[in-house]
Design a protein around this nucleic acid. Structure first.
Length: 776
RNA sequence: UGCCCUAUAGCUCAAUUGGCAGAGUGUCGGAUUCUGGUUCCGAAGGUUCUAGGUUCGACUCCUAGUAGGGCAACCA
């Protein structure tokens, strides 16, 4: 079976839009050298999960294309930045598994160059020193609906600007006295282009440059030019910067020759039950809602590391969530999957009881100590290693593994019931001991010596539970973490609330558990699965202080918890079935195509419709676009059908137009009419006509010439087409079968095959009829 | 209210550029299991935001709308 398309079934891994851009930049040779990206944090906070996404994006892209990714600190605001954050950033990026080698840069190292570029801009008449107050600048910028007004200082001479800018630099002006602004367009619909501020005076010490500079460039100036200086090819940022792109382009075009960097925007990460604004994270730390930036509940990289997340899991997560331009909110389950999946294969299993219940095995002699061999790994993980687990008369099991009145699906211990001790014996519960208030405080059980783990006993029980020896186990502090916020979107707040109103009061629980001896001496970076509980990681900070404290990284998936919930739900059957009413989408009434047209357009619409009979819909489209309308009128002068011309003009030609519009096309209205004619007289199918049209756009040749040159002609000969149809059907018997079984969408596949075989020249109407007949 | 961006399964994303609407995750079943984990198998889940148009054929092109987000710091 070697069907022609079996090769194409090896589906290429899907590429996100930035990869597609880079691919096409390389194939079009817009970029001929290395692909160079950059990660440009401002050192004013600890990196978090959102940064992780950006880090993975930029560094992975560089790795994929064997280019490089620069780490550049965007440190142009002396007031908030600090070396501590630089160190945190470097450490966390490395921990994530990325390396930038010698390519560590600082915008503050470019201050001299940036200053020179600003001078160049002034000399070119593209920037000026404005002496309005901040207040005036703001007011005069206008609003989103009204144009701004020009500063009275806008037309200072280059000489004066140069001199004043030099004085700004020398430090002789006080803060805020003047700014340097780009001279662009005070009426631009894009607020960023209304003469944006490039430099401000700020007599402040910079954490790296000290008091060298009394003026500091702004992001909008420093960022694009730093990219250009470093030879960045693809400058990736988040969506809110898309309005900055015209300014980015303006500055780079003004000061750097090609090849130059280009900016692309993608959506930032929003994670359920999490906040990722530096301001809010800082607030959580400062107001002690958490114990520092690296609190294991924090979405900071340092917090997640301390909690026990791995770089691999985080990278996997970033990979899973993809890169796109739509706003998003990622389900926690996504992150949890990545973490569990990674940890499952790398965490050895041990036993630890978190909420102990004492069990006395009445038929084990006092003082009995037996060592049971236990594997660190389950049968399905190909790793080896065992330890010995002490078995004694008194043991501890999990309180939740005993139920005095078991529900139907509960298969652990209950009075008279049996359960297996993991790696040990089957025990039976003979007696339940309670305290005065009726709480179960102790169980008396007996064990079956024939059922030791590994022994070929026929006996089977439904449940296996973890346990430790009451006398040989070691007490340990275990910290159980839950989500920091109790709602999916903590930023979604009612009047008078803040995100802090949604803090989950139970996000941290500390218990004293009992761990088996083999794991009691665990060391830094050790991580374990406590069987049936979850994944746990030794807390670095506590270990430094000499304490062994376990952080729960994540619980295991718990289907028992789910069945418990659903059992409960069933019992309280009063809860109405959540039969959500089907999505009600308001149907939209037919609209009036003439709605919203002004009097002039309305008149022209009617004129077009009455003189050409093209219908008001098409007429209205032409009428509001005077240049298109006149092109249309010119084309109709050839005598070709006006309706056909309008149709082709509106639906096919316009999408091919560049920004310059219809004036820049390389052929005339009558040549366009000729093409429409070739379609009308069925020389060309619409598919062929479209091909010819795009060729005309490229070369400016006439439709007739292109048809001649390429030998294009619609094939309508039925017997010829029938042969192609039966070829195609014979080549894909499986699909024919599927079609006959009801998958009628395959008609498109068959059509595509026949069209491809005929070079697009088959008459589609005829082919379709033949196909339907053949498949009936 | 002007300009810009976005809209495909519960969630996050694909769909070779106009030719079979898919994946991961989640959910629900089943098998395996000395972890109610893992693994394996299966199922459900779609008005591709809406309405109209072009086309043999539209997630993709055209028109008009709707919803969400961004932009009026001398922050980044």
């Amino acid at each position: 079976m070697s069907s022609s398309d079996s090769a194409s079934s090896s589906k290429r891994e899907s590429r996100h839009f930035i990869q597609q851009i880079i691919d096409s930049d390389r194939s079009s040779r817009r970029v001929t050298g290395d692909i160079v990206t950059r990660f440009p944090p401002e050192p004013n906070g600890y990196p978090h999960i959102g940064h992780a996404k950006a880090i993975c994006l930029n560094f992975s892209l560089a790795n994929e294309y064997q280019g490089r990714c620069h780490l550049r600190f965007d440190d142009t605001n002396p007031e908030t930045e600090d070396m501590e954050y630089v160190r945190a950033m470097r450490r966390d990026i490395r921990w994530l598994g990325f390396e930038w080698g010698e390519h560590e840069y600082y915008a503050s190292d470019y201050f001299e160059q940036l200053y020179d570029l600003a001078v160049q801009l002034i000399k070119d008449g593209k920037a000026y020193v404005d002496s309005q107050t901040g207040e005036e600048i703001r007011t005069n910028r206008g609003t989103v609906t009204e144009a701004g007004v020009a500063s009275p200082f806008r037309d200072r001479s280059p000489e004066e600007n140069l001199e004043m800018f030099a004085t700004m630099r020398s430090g002789d002006f006080p803060d805020g006295a003047h700014v340097l602004r780009a001279k662009i367009d005070m009426a631009s619909p894009n607020m960023l282009m209304r003469d944006p501020v490039l430099y401000r005076i700020k007599h402040a010490a910079h954490y790296r440059r000290g008091n060298d500079w009394p003026i500091y460039p702004l992001y909008d100036f420093a960022h694009p030019l730093s990219d250009a200086i470093e030879g960045i090819t693809h400058s990736l940022c988040t969506l809110e910067f898309d309005v900055h792109r015209p300014l980015y382009d303006w500055l780079v075009d003004a000061l750097f020759p090609a090849p130059r960097p280009h900016q692309y925007e993608s959506a930032r990460l929003n994670l359920d039950y999490t906040v990722t604004s530096k301001r809010k994270l800082l607030q959580l730390v400062k107001e002690k809602f958490v114990d520092g930036w690296d609190d294991p509940r924090m979405p900071t990289i340092s917090g997640m590391r301390r909690r026990g997340y791995t770089p691999e899991a985080l990278r996997r997560f970033c990979d899973m969530i993809g890169v796109a331009k739509a706003d998003n909110r990622v389900d926690m389950a996504q992150l949890e999957f990545a973490v569990r999946d990674d940890l499952n294969a790398r965490a050895p299993r041990v036993m630890c009881v978190l909420e102990p219940l004492k069990v006395i095995l009445t038929n084990v002699p006092e003082g009995h100590l037996e060592e049971l061999e236990a594997s660190y790994w389950p049968h399905d993980i190909p790793k080896e290693g065992t330890r010995m687990v002490p078995f004694t008369r008194e043991i501890l099991i999990e309180q939740s593994d005993f139920m005095e009145v078991p529900s139907k699906k509960f298969h652990r211990l209950s009075p008279g019931g049996e359960v297996r001790l993991r790696y040990g014996y089957i025990i039976r519960c003979d007696n339940v001991v309670k305290d005065a208030s009726g709480n179960v405080i102790e169980l008396h059980c007996s064990f079956d010596p024939e059922t030791r783990s590994g022994a070929s006993s026929e006996r089977r029980v439904k449940g296996t539970i973890h346990w430790v020896s009451a006398t040989e186990s070691v007490p340990v502090e275990v910290r159980l973490y839950d989500r920091l916020f109790s709602v999916p979107n903590p930023d979604d707040v009612a009047e008078g609330e803040t995100f802090l109103s949604h803090i989950n009061p139970d996000s941290k629980t500390i218990v004293t558990g009992r761990i088996e001896p083999a794991a009691a001496s665990a060391d830094a970076l050790d991580r374990y699965q406590f069987e049936r509980q979850g994944l746990f990681f030794l807390d670095e900070k506590e270990l430094e202080k000499g304490n062994r404290v376990w952080n729960r990284t994540i619980t295991l998936r718990d289907t028992w918890e789910k069945t418990k919930q659903s059992e409960k739900a069933k019992q309280s059957a009063s809860t109405p079935a959540k039969s959500e009413s089907p999505k009600q989408i308001e149907p939209q009434p037919d609209r009036d195509p003439l709605e919203g047209l002004d009097a002039d357009a309305l008149a022209r619409t009617h004129a077009l419709d009455t003189s050409f009979g093209i219908g008001v819909d098409d007429a209205a489209i032409l009428a509001v676009r005077p240049k298109v309308e006149s092109f249309f009128r010119d084309a109709t002068a050839t005598g070709e059908s006006p309706a056909a011309i309008a149709n082709w003009l509106i639906n096919e030609l316009r999408p091919l137009l560049s920004e310059d519009g219809i004036e820049s096309i390389p052929f005339s209205a009558s040549q366009f009419a000729e093409l429409v004619g070739l379609h009308s007289d069925e020389t060309l199918s619409s598919r062929l006509a479209k091909e010819v049209l795009s060729e005309m756009m490229k070369t400016g040749e006439s439709a007739g010439a292109i048809v001649e040159k390429r030998g294009l002609k619609q094939i309508s000969d039925e017997s010829l087409l029938a042969a192609h149809v039966s070829d195609v059907l014979a080549a894909h018997p499986d699909r024919v079968e599927a079609y006959k079984a009801g998958k009628v969408g395959l008609i498109g596949f068959f059509m595509g095959q026949v069209m491809a075989k005929t070079g697009g020249q088959a008459n589609p109407g005829t082919v379709k009829a033949l196909l339907e007949k053949a498949l009936a």
